[in-house]
Design a protein around this nucleic acid. Structure first.
Lengths: 347, 347
DNA sequence: GTGAAAGCGCTAACAT
DNA sequence: ATGTTAGCGCTTTCAC
């Protein structure tokens, strides 16, 4: 009972046991078909017997591919001393949903994502370095800031990358997104169906695709319902931002009885503002959010909201990425998911 | 302008440029001090000039270490078809805080955590396999279920592991935790300081250390304040569980004017139950939660709660782990963090 | 269809 | 203090 653990079996061991060369075992392991079925059988037997598992380091040393993909979260710097403040993406249950979705696709294929946070120019450089070094084959990118240069950098460096949400600038890069306009229409319909007659909206930042598209979709839907002018104020996707935006909207439209808030975070703030102003939700004013990000169900009143199928979207990102790693090239993919309306109590 | 990217520089290139052997360059790169300062200078120059970065695969092929650590989240199976339902850990902002903390320590050291979810016996086996194969050097483990066999398995396999929170069973394994009793005392003091005279508690599951210790600490503190008997009902750390527990507590103690709820999730449910019963928070009954998990600040009323310094704890986990990887052996570490009371509006 | 042999880039004895 | 050398485990021509 020495402390020696015994090295794991190698190709060599398997080859010897099967009475063939390493090359043949390698072929079997990698599913090359030019192997005699009988021999293949023997080899597989030997593999099972030894419990052989390929050594990744050795393999990637020669193939120059690791098979590794990274989940990179790019957030603007938090300007805090130790880098220990949890940012908007990581602080939201959204992040866990992305992870869940990715893993649901990746794990069955034996691949585990590397986790990387990028919040500075230095971190960006490091990331590119990793890629150049072949430590990472591809990237699933969650980027929150429309000014973020990372998507462009990655695209320019031809790093296989899939983005969550359409890029703010027109970068040739694959992405997955929800049909924002359609989601906004769902919200509009809920509000008018609910009987609201004085409807407004708190939009997201208009320099983001999500902000723009949700607003546009909402307006279009309201127009279709005969309301040409929809009062709107721009928010910043944060709870505080939503609260102050709601106050402004209320000042502008005291008679408001229904509001579409472009994300749940802001919707929470909006509800607070409404409460503050003495308006009950949904009795006095109905509110619909967007995202269904986890707190939507936990808050009071539970939020009626437009749900992004984040897990499915993340799984699709992983699928697209692995697909591109297998056969590179071709134009970027763009797949759009349909959101659904989740009815709770706020409208 | 061919499509060839040109291979990254190797030790060989640097060596040639510096006019030394690969071994010397290797020494410089790895910080071995038996290198002539002048030569070292020359080599570093060459490294900078070539933009050399060590190839991990090659390195770990010979060292039999990858330098990789995994963040593994072990959740009981979700019993859902596609494995695409976000579980309790991943669905909570807590997860992002753990990641933030780990990364704050790891990234400056050039290491990126691998993300692995373990929710089945099969996934457990795979994980052990990865470790045996040397794909992972160490593990930061977040395990939610007191019955989870993973901590024991890892300890038995002598895999360097650091656990978030003290293990339910007495496994010889390093961990990081909060001083639950102390936190509970903070809560008790807040409640009595607030003037509450009929105080109860919704505890966590009593088969978990956190559940037990928070209850024990709370009772001890109340005893110190002359209250020998504290009414308590056991919850399950979920929002719904907290809601029903609160209802039971209320039935048992109609005059209740203060309650310590053993985590924020349950506190949310408790507030709902209170509201349901027509009691205003904090006017009629004051409530204190535990964790400060993100929704605590966002809900209404914002929750006064005992904050776990999760980011710091996670960073410490990473520190302990890397430390053990460098010099293995020795008894398990256990480091306990002091929680703090965050006063908001619920008490 | 199968085997022999040459490396992938690095570290770690061992020499010097 | 530095260089030489022998692999780490695997894939991949190239012969057969």
């Amino acid at each position: 009972m020495s402390s020696e653990r015994g090295r794991p079996p190698t190709l060599e061991h398997v080859a010897r046991l099967a009475g063939v060369s390493r090359a043949t075992v390698s072929r079997v392991v990698n599913g090359v078909d030019s192997v005699d079925p009988e021999l293949r059988e023997v080899v597989q037997q030997a593999i099972a017997e030894t419990g052989y598992v390929p050594n990744r380091a050795a393999r990637s040393l020669v193939t120059r591919r690791t098979g590794a993909v990274a989940l990179v979260v790019s957030e603007p710097e938090h300007h805090n001393a130790g880098g220990r403040f949890t940012g908007p993406v990581l602080g939201d249950p959204f992040f866990g949903r992305v992870v869940t979705g990715m893993v649901s696709f990746l794990r069955p294929r034996g691949i585990h994502p590397l986790l990387m946070l990028v919040d500075s120019a230095e971190a960006r450089t490091d990331l590119l370095g990793q890629v150049r070094q072949g430590e990472i084959d591809g990237i699933v990118l969650v980027s929150i800031d429309p000014q973020d240069p990372l998507p462009e950098l990655l695209a320019a460096a031809e790093v296989p990358t899939v983005l969550f949400a359409r890029p703010a600038k027109d970068v040739p890069i694959s992405f997955v997104d929800v049909a924002h306009e359609h989601g906004a229409r769902l919200a509009a319909e809920r509000l008018v169906g609910h009987g609201c007659t004085d409807i407004g909206t708190v939009s997201g930042p208009l320099d983001t695709p999500a902000g723009k598209d949700r607003l546009a979709g909402f307006r279009a839907a309201m127009t279709a319902h005969g309301v040409a002018e929809v009062p709107s104020v721009e928010g910043d996707f944060t709870q505080n931002g939503g609260e102050s935006a709601m106050h402004r909207l209320l000042a502008q439209r005291p008679g408001l009885d229904g509001v579409f808030v472009a994300n749940d975070q802001m919707a929470l703030g909006a509800v607070a503002a409404l409460r503050d102003a003495g308006r009950a939700v949904p009795a006095d004013v109905a509110v619909v959010g967007f995202d269904d990000n986890g707190i939507a169900a936990a808050c009071h009143p539970p939020l009626t909201t437009v749900r992004q199928p984040v897990e499915d979207m993340a799984a699709e990102m992983a699928r697209i990425l692995t697909d591109r790693l297998e056969r590179p090239g071709g134009p970027p993919d763009a797949v759009i998911f349909q959101p659904t309306l989740v009815i709770r109590e706020s409208s």
